[in-house]
Design a protein around this nucleic acid. Sequence first.
DNA 1: CTTGACATAGAACGAATGTTCCGATAGAAT
DNA 2: ATTCTATCGGAACATTCGTTCTATGTCAAG
Lengths: 219, 219
Amino acid sequence: MAKGKLSERQRRMLEFIERFIVESGYPPSIREIGKAVGISSTSVVNYNLNRLVEEGYLARDKNVSRGIRMTEKLLKSVGRLTDVIRIRKVGRIFASEPVPLPSTDSPIFSADEAIEISRDLLSITEGLFALEVKGDSMIDAMVSDGDVVIMRREPEWRNGDMVAVWLKDKEETTLKHIYREGNKVRLQPANPTMQPIIIDNPENLEVQGKVVLVVRQLE
Amino acid sequence: MAKGKLSERQRRMLEFIERFIVESGYPPSIREIGKAVGISSTSVVNYNLNRLVEEGYLARDKNVSRGIRMTEKLLKSVGRLTDVIRIRKVGRIFASEPVPLPSTDSPIFSADEAIEISRDLLSITEGLFALEVKGDSMIDAMVSDGDVVIMRREPEWRNGDMVAVWLKDKEETTLKHIYREGNKVRLQPANPTMQPIIIDNPENLEVQGKVVLVVRQLE
DNA sequence: CTTGACATAGAACGAATGTTCCGATAGAAT
DNA sequence: ATTCTATCGGAACATTCGTTCTATGTCAAG
């Protein structure tokens, strides 16, 4: 088999193995794999397992029942490598000032100035930073005082994204869903009962980041 | 053996099992356990394994080689409790129906029906369940459609808690900050621009749980 | 067509593994 | 002392399970 390519069968095997381990707490046997993916012969399962070992997705121990390990490569491809991601808190966000952006990219920071987010809440994990919302000026974005917003610094945006924008003329930061409408830009509050803002001159607004996650801790 | 007490042997078995799983990626066999803790007889290992199951430290699957699971109790006692906590999603919450409450306490659930929350976002980790908010009926609680609320089932509440209440007369679920005021109860929306509800007859409301965390995933 | 690498199927074998049964030991309770 | 219960040791047994071998099919290269 060509290097790096997996057959449909092998993909299904990996998928099953991963799920089985998570759910059962131990790896499946050869026959269990065969049954799950529709292979009657244990030797065929064995054959494909060895293929997967060659490709680096699995590790096996000889003569050990259920002696299958998931490798880092598999874990990473499933996105299960680390459970939590530490995101730097770079400051506070409120209406009257621009969003503080992360100054350094130093990967290390103390626990105090970071927030831990479990990986499966995030689709992307790069370029993230956290801000604590100060005041009630963002209530039209359904964000209250004390909430933590996880943002991604990103100049590009697509229709519907929730972004932090700096309105130059008003000197105001706000969180809105953003839509391009011809030459204009519409900023739509998350609260459906509130009215959008239409920006005639796109030069007037500066998208400072995309909101990826909002966390509100009570008590 | 007295309930809750472990013999020296059993302690060593747990320790070995835990280490073995972490290092090998799969659980040890009975004979491997016996060899490690110095027991020649497989039946004695089996006997003590069953003891450990009774005490709640392990779970076993019959007729399955290496069919041993670590339970939360074991993980907790070893201090290796994971950084993330899996919380069961028990359903959806919307205005027109009472909050669905968790029915089972089965310790196992698949990834689909659970949400992973990093531990440091939570002050308590027991009795939690998750609900997905459906519809825009909770906007006065600053909670939008699609948000996930983590709640704790708890009959007691203190002033200022955000709780899910079922209003019997209106047949309506709502999320509000709750305050006792003499014989009455005040339900205060999180959105400061909105007016509170005063409940004259406390019998009319049913506190279904305390909101501990709100998570909003964008994009 | 022939060849050879790859993939599959089935069967058989032997090793690994969980289960069960019987007897022995120690200690606490009666 | 006797009884009872918990624990242990050893052995035999029944499955589960990984391994290996042979035969078959596929498909592209020569």
